[in-house]
Write a protein that binds this DNA or RNA. Structure first.
Length: 448
RNA sequence: GUGGGUAUAGCUCAGCUUGGUUAGAGCGCCAGAUUGUGGCUCUGGAGGUCGAGGGUUCGAGUCCCUUUACCCACCCCA
């Protein structure tokens, strides 16, 4: 045996958590899952790998896509056409196109899976991370009411997470697009202009004005007007009022305003309070497949964390895979990034290191069967229980419960066996109570 | 891809400017004080090729060069 050990190193950008952190992550994951299902979204899972051809359906192969390879495979059996999915939208498009005849529309699905991107990792940016997606896919058409319901899903989830005040910001790309088209801006230029406007909060009005003029060739008056409109934000009703005072008449503009109004007027009934919602016309999202409503969600006290959930409406999900017309609307929560930020900020705290609620200590190894049957009773009652199996002093057993965050310790030695009255110690306050062996489950339950 | 920074104990870091006995601290870990009781305290202990390679020097954790890794920011995004 060689005495050289390989220095253990994890791949940068591929995060992993300690048990007490992972438990918290799983708790949040459960909230997301429940939140999605509460709105009738059905879970699906697609493979980690797709054919490169499928992932590259939008034209070029994204620089950030990882392919799969077997470095030791013989030359002739090397597969180079498999790649890890980069998001969940393209796999969804493929899935819907393939199963079109078996799915019922509108199709409401959620998908919580890891995705992989070849990025340079840094704080809050990973190469492997969880995306939690919901989408509603319509066939031929999808009512704008679907757009209105999405904020309610988001609101429900982040409220349950108890991660502080947050705000869902919503806009509709058709509004700015309509204005640009009204002034005869070519479609591609309009698209580019929206991308620039998206950076308004980040780089400021002057920089955007400059970029719109020099980058897109917009007349300075139009650029200024776009910035003015994009600068509108606030309570839904107030923004709608301001928009109605504008005299724009382009059909796209009117459509966008109408859709936004539908969303705004239904929020209260859908359970989204005013203080968690804002219309912000500067939100356009850089991605060009969004065609109408767009969403971004921020924590009020930690806006520097960036958007914790975003998405929007698109015209046609799977135009590369089918001739069926499939409009949709969806959002994605980047749970890994959110979780890692929440941990750093101390908004979520690591939980206990073990799910165990009871540690059965073993004082007398000759009575093992008594300890095991007590544990079995507790387990049958659904109470996570472990028995201390190592041959160590009692002190070490108590210490173990303390370190693992196990709240209750069941104790029985010579005296207890003699009287049939065991001890139950509550580690949280140090209080130790004598309990009848027969009432074990009842007593434990009442302390949990 | 562009620009900065860091690398010393399991973890967080000091030591480097002004090179010089056995390289330190806090936390964590193990043991004991208390052989049926954790957290607090005290005592003791284990644990380091000072990222790697080369150079300068009588002598390098410290100075110089190379290299690798990681971190942060930009771009973009979740």
């Amino acid at each position: 045996m060689t005495d050289s050990i390989i220095e253990p190193r994890a791949v940068s950008g591929f995060p992993e958590w300690l048990p007490e952190e992972e438990a918290e992550f799983q708790r949040l994951l459960g909230i997301v899952k429940k939140g999605f299902e509460t709105f009738g979204f059905a879970p699906i899972e697609t493979p980690a790998a797709e054919l490169l051809e499928v992932l590259a359906s939008k034209g070029e192969i994204n620089k950030q896509i990882y392919t799969l390879a077997r470095p030791n495979a013989a030359e002739e059996e090397r597969e180079t056409d498999m790649a890890l999915h980069f998001d969940l939208t393209v796999p969804l498009a493929r899935y819907v196109a393939m199963n079109f005849d078996k799915l019922s529309f509108p199709f409401r699905r959620y998908q919580i899976q890891k995705v992989w991107r070849g990025e340079r990792p840094q704080k809050g940016r990973f190469r492997e991370f969880y995306q939690c997606d919901i989408d509603v896919i319509g066939h031929e058409s999808l009512d704008p009411l679907n757009d209105a319901e999405i904020p309610a899903v988001i609101y429900g989830i982040f409220t349950k997470m108890q991660i502080g005040a947050f705000v869902i910001r919503v806009s509709n790309r058709k509004i700015l697009q309509g204005i640009l088209l009204e002034f005869a801006t070519p479609a591609e230029i309009a698209m580019e202009a929206l991308r620039i406007v998206d950076r308004l909060p980040k780089i400021g009005a002057d920089a955007v004005q400059h970029d719109l003029e020099t980058g897109c060739g917009l007349p300075s008056e139009l650029a200024a007007h776009i910035i003015e409109i994009a600068g509108i934000s606030g309570r839904g009703a107030d923004v709608m009022e301001r928009l109605e005072k504008n005299n724009h008449s382009h059909p796209l503009y009117l459509e966008g305003a109408e859709e936004l109004k539908l969303l705004v007027t239904n929020l209260a009934a859908l359970g989204v309070p005013d203080d968690a919602f804002e219309v912000d016309l500067s939100i356009t999202r850089g991605l060009d497949y969004y065609t109408g409503t767009v969403y971004e969600t921020f924590l009020r006290d930690y806006s520097q964390l960036g958007s914790i959930c975003s998405g929007g409406r698109y015209d046609n999900l799977a135009s590369h895979f089918t001739t069926q017309h499939l409009p949709g609307v969806g959002i994605s929560i980047g749970l890994t990034r959110l979780f890692s930020n929440l941990l750093d900020a101390g908004i979520v705290k690591p939980s206990a290191k073990s799910p165990s609620k009871v540690l059965v200590s073993v004082m007398d190894r000759a009575r093992l069967k008594d300890y095991f049957s007590a544990a079995t009773e507790l387990r049958h009652a659904g109470i996570p229980t472990e028995v201390f199996l190592e041959n160590k002093r009692f002190k070490a057993q108590i210490k173990y419960a303390d370190k693992k965050g196990i709240p209750l310790v069941l104790i029985a030695g010579e005296t207890e066996f003699a009287t049939g009255t065991w001890l139950l110690k509550d580690m949280r306050n140090g209080i130790q109570t004598s309990i009848s062996r027969k009432e074990l489950v009842t007593c434990v339950s009442s302390l949990l």
